[in-house]
């Protein structure tokens, strides 16, 4: 079974040379730490930064340079700043190659819910609805089950939707899955996790190929 860093490490392998990538808050943010250093990738932050770098050295924080999580950051050579409308032109216009975001629920038809729990938690969707409605290449990073142990991979989402039929790939602490025409397709198992365990933790339809290799991390 993987921890959050393990999920990020596996997703980092989906990041290819020359990609512009948007990382959501939470596990997705960790992906930047595991991208191979022999490829060129630029990270986009929807508040108006392309070419995000690591956190600043202590004492060098600049309140005018933050990421979408409102954290102080730095920029790398080749970076640019722009306004919010242009930022979402990059996103809606499909200039961003890969979007990685977290989710509360994903359904077997690719629907995703990650912005609201009625009566409990209403923080808002931020840029998630724009991202999932437009991106061709969306990977969801999340735990396979919630804190109560219930599956987050469902037949249909129960929470208010963020987008419909948009998720293509999911990486969890247990598995890598694809959204196929007839439900989830199990592609890889996390180290030490059996197909039976993944099946038990998946509420939506799960297609299991004859061979399910263990993840190569």
């Amino acid at each position: 079974m993987l921890d959050k860093n393990g999920i990020a490490r596996r997703i980092a392998r989906e990041v290819k040379d020359g990609y512009y990538v948007n990382l959501g808050i939470g596990i997705p943010t960790l992906v930047a730490n595991f991208v191979r250093d022999d490829i060129e990738v630029e990270f986009q932050s929807e508040n108006g930064v392309l070419g995000m770098g690591p956190f600043p050295w202590e004492g060098e924080e600049d309140p005018d340079i933050i990421n979408a999580g409102k954290q102080t950051i730095t920029t790398l050579p080749g970076a640019s700043f722009f306004d919010s409308s242009m930022s979402f032109a990059m996103i809606r216009g499909q200039h961003v190659d890969l979007t990685i975001l977290g989710a509360m629920e994903v359904a077997e038809n690719g629907d995703i819910a990650n912005w609201k729990i009625p009566g409990k938690m209403v923080k808002g969707m931020g840029g998630a609805m724009d991202l999932v409605a437009s991106a061709e290449n969306i990977i969801v990073a999340m735990m396979h089950t919630n804190k109560a142990g219930a599956s987050k991979l469902l037949e249909r989402c129960t929470l208010p939707l963020t987008g419909v039929g948009c998720v293509k790939k999911i990486v969890t602490n247990l598995a890598v899955l694809e959204v196929g025409p007839e439900g989830f397709i199990l592609l890889e198992r996390a180290p030490g996790v059996s197909v039976a365990e993944i099946k038990a933790a998946t509420a939506g339809r799960l297609h299991i190929p004859d061979e399910v290799p263990e993840m190569d991390l």
């Binding site: 956190f55 600043p56 202590e58 924080e61 309140p63 005018d64 999580g69 954290q71 950051i73």
Partner: peptide
């Protein structure tokens, strides 16, 4: 004031 909401840094 330009308050920082999430001060994140690398420590030397």
């Amino acid at each position: 004031e330009k308050r920082i909401e999430q001060r994140t840094v690398r420590t030397r």
